[in-house]
Design a binder for these strands. Structure first.
Lengths: 229, 229, 229, 229
DNA sequence: AATGAATGAGAATTCATTCAT
DNA sequence: GATGAATGAATTCTCATTCAT
């Protein structure tokens, strides 16, 4: 998987004037986006408000509308931004993996690391389902497409069970990773009630065994469906 | 996995009067809950409104507060209700499975069947994350607990890789099933743009192979981690 | 001209619920309409605000939306109400006029009397041109239709120049009356800067002579159009 | 009626600097005024915005405040400009009229012609009543003063009923012309839904008869006012 | 047990105007 | 002269909840 950075907008333009952004404008836009990440993550979409975002960004309320059309539009921009960043983190992590399966594992490790550092990812992305279903699909699809390409390559290399359907498997892995991350990173609290800095290695290893089992080519075809006969 | 039906409320009482519900009262409560299922599923939590629910239930607005404390409280009641029903559907499906692994498969089949028939499940349950995180945890946990118990039993019976951690694996399966359901049931549309009545068997089989691989005891320990050596 | 009261709405319904109004509801609606008349007249459409209207009506802000869809919709209702009332005032005034021309004069007198008592008429109705052009047309048309019918009858009775086109003449009369009312009633101020209680009789007489000239059948056809020949 | 052009501003100065305008400055100011005419006419005062005006004028937003104090001030400047132009059009039209009454007719013709060519006149001028009542009075008064002077001259020449009060009559004529113009020019649409290029001659003739009747000296005093005795 | 009129806190959004460049 | 980013007061409208009937 290449580590290309997919840029979602060619050139940023002001929704108010339709003109491309100046240097100053781009900086303001970024501050708004950063503020939005915090506010949406802490309060959720509906509790969040434009004033809260602009206050946190340190700009006037009206300024918001110079850069975004609406609350929903900054939310979407944020999801796309997070998606780009998480995929970037995953690619980086996979960059120097030895084998295909190692790469897969490294990708998950990168994903969990990013999640631990940016809990906003879950909170924001999962809420997108109810705010902007299309961007949510985009988000999942972009990640899953990466998995799928990786799986196909691994199958060609003989590292992955050739009988597995890459698409279904990719979605399975995505769902697995997402829920494991939710359960063992976001829900987890240490003795002091604070979130863990990273995924518990024991859990990661357990998950790895699950994945390895699932993906590895069968050494001998079991007679599974008739196993009781 | 036992097919116990967890009843979440001992005796229903009116939040307004604190008195137990009459027959007529119980019927009204149920109508409200049914209306809520439709309205929440169609419009989402925030778009939904009490008036829409009472109108659909065919009762006066004020009546609502005879049975529920608030919008959030009927939502939570609905999530718990759906959880009870989906677990029931899964238990039923697993009831006459041959082997442990068959039961696992049957459980997923039951889950998908329920999902196809009650799309509200996803829409409502997943939104619970942002409305009532505690009930969402309850929902996931209750289902996962079932998986976990099943896995332990299967491990004891030698049907499942004894090296797998049951808890992690259960969450992995839950996430996998959830995302496969979302992608291949809820997002899927046929030529006429209508949702499929059931999960595509090919996808189900592909997923089954993935699960079988993951869970089956290894016939011989692969040297995977050292495969480059 | 008959003195029928044109009722513009069969049965009043709540825009929020679509249900017919109760006694209490109708009273509240009326209070809002009365408040709106004062507020729109004093401040104009754009300076007026829903809060100002509800405060003056002594009801909560939200109550407004039980009876009207929007600021524009109460404005339209008010124009229609004023139209009904001014036409009623005119009909009453014309009721016991001796001749056709007397009736015409009496109609204007009634119009000016209503205007003096309800300056809101002008302020609100004329502003309708920029808020709701359709209701403005309705307003003018309804009054002009009355004039026109009166003129036709008078022509048949031989009281009005048969060569005059009733439609054009009716609009001419409407415009005349409107501007005379504006100039000599609404703009007029006495020594203390207060608006006059009624139209100056001298002006009314001057206007009457103008109308009498315009409408009366010519005793002999002047050679006016050919006067240069 | 003389054809003097009343110039409302001696020398144009920048409201920002207080300095007289350069050639280039005057051109920019004029472009803004022309843009304002279109924008105010199309959208009305409140829908119009400074940005829309500057965009149409092709200048930067800030430039606006080099030439006008405020939205209201450019609006007022526009009304005064339109008033000057419509009076000019009327004077031109009356220039070579034969008789006094012909001149009166010609004046109306000129007014209607200008209206047909510049629908902005009505839209802008009539809205002035709610934006800047003083300029509206100025507008009406300046036109009416012209009528009144014409009427007095015509009375001295024996062309107009000496019993008519010139002031009242002038306002009556103004109102009449205004409403006829509104009804038969601005509201009128042909089969294709497009506004007519000019006033329907039949309507104009009908109106002329009305005016002729109203103004012409009575050949014999009718017994109208005593008709009931 | 049922009803629905009344409420008001709260949120999104617009735009005339300023001012540093 | 010209520009356009920044501002925030002000407005409309929604809806969960209360309570008198």
């Amino acid at each position: 998987m290449s580590s290309e950075l997919i840029d979602d907008e060619g050139e940023l333009v002001s929704p108010a004037t339709g003109r491309p952004l100046t240097k100053r404008g781009e900086a303001t836009r970024r501050r708004l986006l950063e503020a939005a990440e915090v506010v949406f993550a802490e309060q959720g979409y509906h509790e969040a408000s434009i004033v809260k975002i602009t206050e946190r960004a340190g700009v006037g309320l009206g300024t918001f509308y110079l850069y975004f059309d609406s609350k929903q539009s900054i939310f979407e921009a944020l999801v796309i931004d997070l998606n780009r960043r998480v995929r970037h983190a995953m690619s980086e992590a996979m960059a120097d993996a030895g084998s295909r399966l190692d790469a897969e594992r490294a990708g998950f490790a990168g994903f969990f690391r990013f999640t631990a550092e940016h809990p906003a990812l879950y909170r924001v992305v999962r809420e997108a389902e109810f705010v902007s279903p299309e961007v949510l699909r985009l988000h999942y699809t972009r990640i899953v497409d990466g998995y799928e390409a990786g799986l196909r390559a691994a199958q060609r290399a003989g590292d992955v069970d050739p009988e597995l359907d890459p698409a279904t498997t990719a979605w399975a892995l995505m769902g697995m990773g997402e829920l494991i991350g939710m359960r063992f990173l976001l829900w987890e609290r240490d003795a002091d009630g604070r979130p863990p800095a990273a995924m518990d290695p024991a859990v990661f290893d357990a998950m790895s065994r699950f994945i390895d089992n699932a993906l590895a080519p069968r050494t001998q075809e079991p007679t599974q469906k008739d196993e009781k006969g």
